[in-house]
Simulated assay, not measured.
Amino acid sequence: MKHPYLNEEHEIFRKTLKKFLAKECAPYYEQWEEERLIPRSFWRKMGEQGFLCPDVDEAYGGSGVDWSFSVVINEELERIGSSLIGIGLHNDIVIPYISAYGTEEQKRRWLPSCVAGECISAIAMTEPGTGSDLANIQTTATLDGDHYLLNGQKTFITNGIHADLVIVACKTNLQAVPKHKGLSLLVVEKDTLGFSRGRKLNKVGLHSQDTAELIFEDCLVPKENLLGEEGEGFTYLMEKLQQERLIVAIAAQVASEKMLQLTMDYVKTRKAFGKQISQFQNTQFKIVEMATDIEMGRTFLDQLVAEHIAGENIVTKVSMAKWKLTEIARNVAVECMQLHGGYGYMEEYEIARRYRDTPVASIYAGTNEIMKTIIAKNLGL
């Protein structure tokens, strides 16, 4: 399908990326799933080929291209498997905070190694007792001379095991009214005193994508590692969540497209009662219903991506897309497994993995219930 925001240059880029992934990723993906980790060597190869942080300015090692190249990267990674989302998080969620709010010194210190794949990043918002309610996070940071003393615990952190650089949402002002005015962002480097990793979490799906607990006990963070200004953390988070949720929508859309194609291929070859199961009316109706939802989702998504690249504020529509496209993907996973019959429940069939990996998209980056709350508010309800 042709995307309205892509041209011939993007298609050449896509072909190069697909060729790279076919050689360096696809043959090893199931092994990584079994080992529960994507090797750092793959990150470095991605960096060497220019597939990390392509929109970072050339002065810091990037290609300085527009965000449409990141869309291509996210689409092709999802076609291999959902556990590669940590790369999208690095490219399009964490690094943009540094590009947008970092000082010149911070950018020169961190961005080149992030672009090269030598430094893997994460962002730490969620806590054991706090998910969507960011204003009530309990992690605190107190300025003591030249350092912040950071204390708290984070959980469900994507790239948590590999991360060399973690942007931590914390409270620097406990008396702030309203509460969210007390939030700041600190960048914690891997060898920082007082920073440790807890459990590598064992998830239902996304097996090779490392997810961990992070612990900060009197963690000594240099005051130079404050990202932006004190008390502006909540504002920064809100400004960047549009792109984060758009990435989730992109992944959900591509997952739906891939699951449908897998299922169409299967029902055309599988026979029952003397004919292909694709010839049964029930199968045809199920396929038609999914294909229609997916086609409508693609049209809406492409429009949003084009508007986002143009710099438009599309928070309401992105919230709609994140909710609806992840819900469609979850439904598609269920229907496609059913159409695979007993084979769909076997790990050797990709649909089984997709069935495990898909549901969490309706939870992370803000639950779908939160998306509906945002939409309702912005509709003036």
Score class of each variant (00 low, 15 high):
61 G>W: 02
51 F>W: 01
40 R>P: 13
48 E>G: 03
49 Q>R: 10
63 S>A: 13
64 G>I: 05
75 E>V: 08
62 G>P: 04
39 P>Y: 04
73 I>D: 10
65 V>R: 05
69 F>P: 04
74 N>P: 10
49 Q>F: 01
79 R>T: 11
78 E>Y: 13
45 K>R: 12
40 R>H: 12
40 R>D: 15
80 I>P: 13
68 S>V: 03
50 G>S: 02
44 R>L: 15
46 M>H: 02
46 M>W: 02
74 N>A: 12
78 E>P: 12
65 V>W: 01
66 D>H: 06
63 S>K: 15
60 Y>L: 02
76 E>S: 09
51 F>K: 02
45 K>D: 14
66 D>I: 06
53 C>F: 03
55 D>H: 08
51 F>C: 03
53 C>A: 05
48 E>A: 09
76 E>D: 13
53 C>I: 09
44 R>W: 04
46 M>Y: 00
49 Q>K: 10
56 V>I: 01
41 S>D: 15
43 W>N: 06
66 D>W: 01
60 Y>R: 00
47 G>Y: 02
42 F>M: 14
80 I>A: 10
54 P>A: 04
62 G>A: 02
41 S>K: 08
68 S>R: 00
61 G>E: 07
41 S>I: 14
72 V>G: 07
59 A>S: 11
42 F>L: 15
73 I>H: 05
58 E>M: 07
75 E>M: 09
59 A>F: 07
56 V>R: 00
50 G>Q: 03
70 S>C: 09
74 N>E: 14
78 E>H: 14
58 E>P: 02
43 W>S: 07
41 S>V: 15
44 R>A: 12
71 V>L: 08
80 I>Q: 12
61 G>S: 02
42 F>T: 11
50 G>Y: 03
74 N>L: 14
76 E>W: 08
80 I>C: 13
66 D>C: 05
75 E>Q: 10
46 M>S: 07
57 D>Q: 06
47 G>L: 00
40 R>F: 13
60 Y>T: 01
80 I>W: 10
81 G>H: 10
72 V>T: 10
56 V>A: 01
